[in-house]
Amino acid sequence: MTVRLADDGAIMLEGNCPVEDAETLARFLLLDPSAAVDWRTCEKAHAAVIQILLTARPLMRGSPRSAFLRDWVTPVVSRSPAIQR
């Protein structure tokens, strides 16, 4: 599984997260809306996964490995909902 719960309750996104991860991620976030998402080892994430992050706006931990995600998606995802565009 490329999405899993860590011991401290954080949700880990690892490696190449396919479209199926979206549902799992959504379920984890619904169970614990305050859970942080750690995507430091994430190399690729399907748009469906990013879409979950944009909806739930969890606390993002670190920045992902892929340059595309780091440069273009991180700023959108980690912007707090208060100033979301």
């Binding site: 479209v19 979206a22 549902e23 959504a26 976030l29 619904l30 809306p33 748009a47 469906a48 990013i50 879409q51 979950i52 944009l54 909806t55 739930a56």
Partner: peptide, 11 residues
């Protein structure tokens, strides 16, 4: 989040 259909693209 609970109403989002994770497999429908809204982007």
């Amino acid at each position: 989040l609970e109403e989002l259909n994770p497999f429908e693209c809204n982007l």
